[in-house]
């Protein structure tokens, strides 16, 4: 059974011009210990999907099923998800570690706080404890060794000194390692990483990718990795889900995804990448609006294979090869 099962998930955001249909009936599953890449261009809904799983959609309204360990998260209620799931069983690695680290607290204190609240052996805090925590600061010197071990795990040099530093005194790569360490601390079953290497230089990105890959394998955690970089996705993912304008287009094991893409969008996306031949092929047209998007398959206005049917009816998922699912009426020949 899969760890996370998303079924026909719709998400709407209210805007001045009417509801933006950010997700249009997306289905997706992640197995135990699996690394799934969620790729697509801006506005495709990959971040919205991650937010929906974390229960942090803000003004967005979700409809559908998000089943985690057999439990429906949407039915569970926002408060219960916040207290029991988010930050415990499901953790998050952001694109910009600066945004998730407190700029004025030392690394050690932030880790100690996290340990006090979210360590795997702690019970979820009661409401009273949560309120009181606003006025008290806990430090547990006993956790110092654990904190050092944790930093060593993610290969931060001189962990003893790093504990006394402010986030701004770490390098970009070290900060991202720190957020990975903090995401691993509660011993989660699923980590959502939102473009975790996009802000990093390539040599640092390579280090972080390898680290993430090794840690995930070692601890048996599942990873949902959103990225716009197909190269990064191919490094770390077992399976890749391509999204376009709020719809999933194609789901395939990494190898067949790159070797035999079947969806016209996937094929066009791969062809638009810089290549050794130096041939540049763009995708004519542009990403459709999410308010009043095109009907049926949202890619049809830009699709070379499109027919009248594509505009009328959204294609159902079809398994074209083992584990390779496709939502297209007129797929590219294999």
């Amino acid at each position: 059974m899969s760890l996370l099962e998303v079924q026909r998930l719709f998400v709407r955001y209210p805007t001045e011009r009417g509801p933006a249909q950010a997700l249009d009936g997306v289905s997706l599953s992640i197995g135990q210990g699996e690394v799934v890449g969620l790729v697509g261009e801006s506005g495709c809904g990959k971040t919205t999907l991650a937010k929906a799983v974390l229960g942090i959609l803000g003004s967005g309204e979700a409809e559908g099923v998000i089943r985690f360990r057999g439990q429906d998260l949407l039915g569970l209620g926002a408060d219960a998800v916040r207290r029991e799931i988010r930050g415990r069983a499901i953790t998050f690695v952001p694109q910009d570690p600066f945004g998730s680290l407190h700029p004025l607290y030392r690394v050690g204190d932030q880790i100690a706080d996290l340990m006090a609240w979210k360590a795997p052996d702690t019970a979820p805090p009661s409401r009273l404890q949560e309120r009181l925590a606003l006025f008290t600061r806990r430090r547990r010197p006993a956790h110092r060794d654990a904190a050092i071990a944790m930093l060593r795990d993610v290969q931060i040099p001189n962990p003893e000194q790093a504990l006394a530093k402010l986030p701004s005194e770490l390098s970009g790569g070290q900060r991202q390692r720190l957020t990975i360490a903090m995401a691993l601390l509660p011993q989660p079953e699923l980590i959502l990483a939102d473009e975790p290497t996009t802000a990093l230089d390539v040599t640092i990105q390579a280090q972080v990718l390898r680290l993430l890959h090794n840690l995930v394998r070692e601890k048996g955690v599942s990873l949902l990795f959103t990225t716009h970089d197909l190269g990064v996705a191919s490094e770390i993912c077992d399976r890749i889900v391509v999204m376009y304008a709020g719809q999933e287009a194609e789901v395939a094991p990494t190898r067949s995804f790159f070797a035999a893409p079947r969806h016209p969008y996937t094929a066009a996306l791969l062809q638009s990448l810089p290549n050794e031949q130096g041939v540049l092929r763009d995708i004519p047209g542009s990403i459709p609006p999410l308010v009043n998007p095109p009907g049926g398959c949202r890619f049809h206005p830009r699709c070379p294979n499109a027919s009248a049917r594509c505009a009328a009816e959204r294609p159902p998922p079809v398994e074209v090869a083992p584990g390779h699912w496709l939502r297209c009426w007129h797929p590219v020949a294999a």
């Binding site: 933006a20 542009s286 459709p288 609006p289 999410l290 308010v291």
Partner: peptide, 8 residues
């Protein structure tokens, strides 16, 4: 952002 999303 919305212009980007609805780029005509």
């Amino acid at each position: 952002q919305s212009a980007k999303v609805q780029e005509a």
